[in-house]
């Protein structure tokens, strides 16, 4: 059984079909890339998968259960983590508090009025920060971190609910080439170790072709190619609409 199974996913905005019937499956531990020109519908697709947008049609099954149209927080409870194109972290908190807050939510403790939260889930939080190599910077404020480090923190937050699926929207956007390779290496390592499926969008073809097991190409809301990096790179239609010379 697939980890994620998407059938006939559709969404329109003001009469324009942003996503026009997308089908695909994702297996545990697999890194699947979703690429395509701007406006192809990648972000729309992503936002429907984690529940930020309600699809007009089609179905999404996660771990055998339908999650179509459920709000983000419910999708998250089922085991879907997410990182954003522009990092979304809590800037007034320290790195450690960011992860602690995610853990508090995961353990259902956010409604408690005592004790001070700085004492809660310290070890778990440090373990996650260790994993992404941010443990030494645990006490720094997120607002003063370098962008690459912020991306790592976001990854640690996204792992707080022990997800089975990670959705990463342009995980390396805004990073220098070396940092990109490093972050994706980290992500794929975690994916293999923990059998987490990762779906990611990406504009940097070096990253895509180096890390993805399979690549899907979206153009004007439709998948025009699916296959291994080698197959996709050789596809004439993909070259015409996206890759160019």
């Amino acid at each position: 059984m697939s980890l994620l199974s998407v059938r006939g996913l559709r969404k329109s905005f003001g009469g324009i079909e942003a996503v026009a019937g997308v089908d695909f499956d994702l297996e545990p531990g697999e890194l699947l890339a979703l690429i395509g020109p701007n406006g192809a519908g990648k972000s729309t697709c992503f936002n429907m998968l984690n529940g930020q947008l309600r699809p007009d049609g089609g179905s999404i099954a996660f771990d055998g259960q339908p999650i179509t149209g459920l709000p983000p927080r419910v999708v998250w409870r089922r085991g879907v983590g997410r990182t954003f194109q522009v990092t979304a972290t809590f800037l007034s908190m320290t790195v450690l508090q960011n992860v602690q807050t995610a853990l508090l939510s995961f353990h259902g403790r956010l409604r408690s009025f005592r004790p001070w939260s700085s004492r809660l889930y310290l070890d778990e939080a440090f373990a996650l920060l260790e994993l992404v190599g941010m443990a030494e910077q645990g006490d720094r404020l997120c607002s003063v971190l370098a962008y690459g480090d912020l991306k790592r923190v976001e990854l640690a937050i996204a792992l707080a609910n022990a997800p089975k699926l990670l959705l990463m929207d342009e995980p390396t956007a805004g990073m220098a080439p070396a940092e990109r390779i490093e972050l994706m290496r980290l992500a794929s390592e975690i994916a293999h170790e923990r059998r987490i499926g990762i779906l990611f969008t990406e504009h940097d073809m070096d990253v895509v072709f180096a890390h993805a097991a399979r690549v899907m190409v979206l153009d004007r809301g439709r998948l025009i190619a699916v296959g291994t990096p080698r197959q996709v790179r050789g596809d004439a239609q993909v070259r015409a609409v996206y890759l160019g010379s």
């Binding site: 701007n38 956007a173 609409v241 996206y242 160019g244």
Partner: peptide
């Protein structure tokens, strides 16, 4: 060129 398809970058 950020976030643009290779064709547009050209």
């Amino acid at each position: 060129s950020e976030g643009l398809a290779p064709l547009i970058v050209e």
